[in-house]
């Protein structure tokens, strides 16, 4: 939509010859406003901007194993080059993509199913809603240990049941096998996250107008058609935000893989964050870890950009 403005005189407005004040002039002009927010700005600079700056700076240095930072050596982009050309980086990136995409997709789909189910009136809905929220409120550390014991390759409940019911002749080796470890911890992550998607989508479902659904029903639309053509379009915005938040959370996941496998076996569950942690605090290579962090930061910023775009899409439409 375009807005046409008619001028009373019928002539074009005279161009504003006064130059727009620059940033410094604007600060001077509103010095009292800036004074009010100065403490918050200073704190933000200290706790957000400085660590980011220092991480970027460190990423251009080789830091000695003895942590003697005054002896760090400037290596330019060598750390980035070493990371991007290493085989382990691409293995870890592959794991990270599998972890993030599968966790996000299944957490969203399960969350959507649970939200649709809980959006209907039925006996015990409140209890079921509370039960389904439990994974979200449980500490990730506690959940990781519980699942670790459930999966345990020698004494795990799941393995014992599979033997008892005759599915396998010996306990399934979930976490100590390079092929099953990543899927096993993705299941835990989905279990932990789907209730977040459920809450978000349940809130979104409240915005679907009842009269539209009834009208569609009167027009002969079946349940799938009502869901796909009426409900889903109304959930588009909240779905976008939920998926983006899940993507960001999963890219930043640390607790579940670290506690359950420590990135093993043989790097099978190593993702970016565990790799960065190990690089910094296991291998004491802060320069390399910082370069890794900057790469992750760039990816996150891109996702953040889309997140903000998704959030403000409605506002832009209103302005138009």
């Amino acid at each position: 939509m375009t807005i046409h403005v008619a001028h009373r005189s019928g002539a074009m407005p005279a161009p504003n010859l006064r130059r727009k004040p620059n940033l410094f002039q604007r600060i001077l002009l509103h010095w009292n406003d800036y004074t009010y927010i100065a403490p918050a700005l200073i704190v933000m600079l200290l706790v957000i901007a400085f660590p980011i700056y220092y991480t970027v700076e460190l990423s251009f240095f080789k830091t000695p194993a003895n942590l003697s930072m005054d002896k760090k050596i400037f290596v330019g982009l060598d750390n980035y080059w070493a990371i991007l050309t290493s085989k382990s980086f691409w293995n870890v990136t592959y794991n990270t993509l599998i972890w993030t995409v599968f966790s996000t997709f299944f957490a969203f789909v399960l969350g959507l199913g649970a939200a649709l189910a809980l959006n209907r009136e039925f006996l015990g809905r409140g209890v079921l809603r509370a039960v389904l929220l439990v994974p979200y409120v449980i500490s990730a550390v506690a959940a990781s240990y519980v699942w670790k014991w459930l999966y345990h390759s020698d004494f795990g409940v799941i393995g014992a049941l599979s033997v008892q019911f005759g599915f396998t002749d010996r306990p399934i080796n979930f976490l100590d096998n390079i092929y099953t470890a990543l899927p096993a911890i993705i299941v835990v992550n989905i279990w932990k996250e789907f209730s977040f998607a459920m809450i978000m989508l349940l809130a979104g479902l409240q915005t679907v107008p009842d009269q539209l659904l009834r009208a569609a029903q009167v027009d002969g639309a079946n349940a799938w058609q009502r869901f796909w053509h009426v409900t889903m379009p109304h959930l588009k915005g909240v779905s976008m935000v939920t998926i983006l938040l899940l993507l960001v959370t999963n890219l930043n996941s640390f607790i579940i893989p670290w506690i359950m496998t420590g990135g093993g076996p043989a790097g099978a569950t190593d993702i970016w964050i565990t790799q960065i942690y190990q690089m910094a605090f296991g291998r004491i290579r802060f320069g390399m870890a910082s370069a890794y962090s900057v790469i992750l930061f760039i990816v996150m910023m891109l996702l953040g950009y889309f997140y903000v775009k998704a959030l403000t899409r409605g506002d832009e439409a209103k302005v138009e």
Partner: peptide, 10 residues
């Protein structure tokens, strides 16, 4: 031999 805990890796 599979004579040690299968969970040795974790």
């Amino acid at each position: 031999d599979k004579s040690v805990p299968a969970s040795a890796l974790t």
